[in-house]
Design a protein around this nucleic acid. Structure first.
Lengths: 235, 235
DNA sequence: CAAAAAACGAGAGCACTGCTCTTGCATATG
DNA sequence: CATATGCAAGAGCAGTGCTCTCGTTTTTTG
């Protein structure tokens, strides 16, 4: 007892470990039954304690959800970043496609986690500030590619629609978050491509393309190629 | 009693009316608390009967959900169709924009209904075949505009990415549903625009653009204009 | 027209949920 | 050593979807 207590308290270490165990079990349950069917009592049973004991570690079901959300955001974010890093920096189209594929692959492998992040928000849940950082990782990877594209010199972006002042102002909120400002037209295209990527993955995963698309892989590849062209990354 | 029974049974009419009352009440609750928090017991209380009595009209909670889903699909579908009809047939870009705006407006006005249709699927729920018809109305409106565009003659569609055989095959499932076949490139663009529209609305509604976009209206207008250009509808 | 059959509303009950509160015990701190 | 804190367990509350039974009413049938 004396030997363990000298390393910053045995109780504290036990607490950290139990907290981790609960979260891991919750993650397993999430992957199996989905966010809506997540039961705090079932998790407690699986861990081997009574439900009220869990509340010592997570004050409410929402706090546990927040931990899982942050974990999932970080996972898909790192997946996207890793895919980006694995490409030659100059291969802009390749990088963009790799990131898109990474996001979709992660979504298909972790459908319930994806639903937790990007599906309907759970009723009483209000996402705390801690989630916005991890949530921004994927979009930031896409913006990073766009920034590199701009630095590599101007490319004839497809049908360059004039960016009106209203749109310029609407996007000023994101410009301040970037290291260097991005051409408004490219920035708008970037957000649009993010919406397309997210939209396609969600439609596929939630079964809304069931009657229309026979081969999801092929269709997705084509959409990605189309996006690369629209962003002017194929040069 | 004798006077009402001669018109096809008083009991049958009462049943139809009560069924409608339950569904209307459920719809109100859905709009207020969202799909996840929909309580059959609360609906029963509101209608003025005990919970078990509702099961005489809807065998399970999922059957009630199905009724609400069909109702909502039809609503947004009709909204889109109406917006399309209100435009001059030759104004392809205007029609497309009007449909997009109609969908977004409906989503912003009925966020919980939208979440029910396009958010994460509810855990145990399996959408029956009755929903695919109403669910197809909005996409079919978009495809109708594309068909008209094709009929109006070939337009130089922006950066025309070659459509590989794999994609052609992947989309063959939807071609058979159309009255007349649509150019594969245009069809792919059409599906992509549907994903973009859906993705943008979902990201906005579910709060994923909170930090990035300041003026949703302006940004959406720009995205729509961009889509119109990509589809070659601006001529 | 009367009897059998079906439909119906109400109530009790089951197994489950998130969450709170109290009780007793182990640990950490003065 | 005594005291305060951390923790697990249990009981309990209000709520959920759903099933079953029990009288009553309405419809259909003989």
């Amino acid at each position: 007892m004396s030997t363990e207590s000298l390393s910053q308290g045995a109780r504290a270490r036990a607490r950290a470990e139990i907290t981790r165990t609960i979260q891991e079990t919750a993650r397993r349950h999430l992957a199996e039954v989905g966010p809506a069917a997540l039961s705090l009592r079932a998790i407690a049973r699986d861990v081997g304690m009574v439900s009220s004991a869990v509340y010592r570690y997570f004050p409410s079901r929402d706090d546990l959800l927040t931990a899982l959300i942050v974990e999932a955001y970080d996972e898909v974010g790192e997946q996207a970043e890793r895919a980006d890093r694995a490409c030659h920096r100059a291969d802009l189209g390749g990088r963009f496609g790799a990131v898109c594929r990474a996001v979709r692959d992660w979504a298909l492998t972790h459908p319930h986690e994806y639903a937790l992040l990007y599906g309907s928000p759970v009723p009483g849940y209000q996402a705390p500030q801690t989630t916005v950082g991890p949530a921004s990782r994927v979009p930031l990877v896409l913006l990073g590619i766009a920034a590199d594209a701009q630095r590599a010199g101007p490319a004839p972006i497809a049908p360059a629609v004039q960016v009106p002042d209203a749109e310029r102002a609407a996007l000023s909120g994101i410009q301040v978050l970037l290291d260097e400002p991005i051409n408004d037209s490219l920035l708008a295209r970037c957000l649009q491509s993010w919406a397309t990527l997210f939209g396609h993955v969600s439609l596929e995963l939630f079964g809304h393309m069931h009657t229309a698309v026979l081969d999801y892989d092929a269709h997705f590849e084509h959409v990605v190629r189309q996006l690369v062209a629209d962003l002017g990354l194929d040069r």
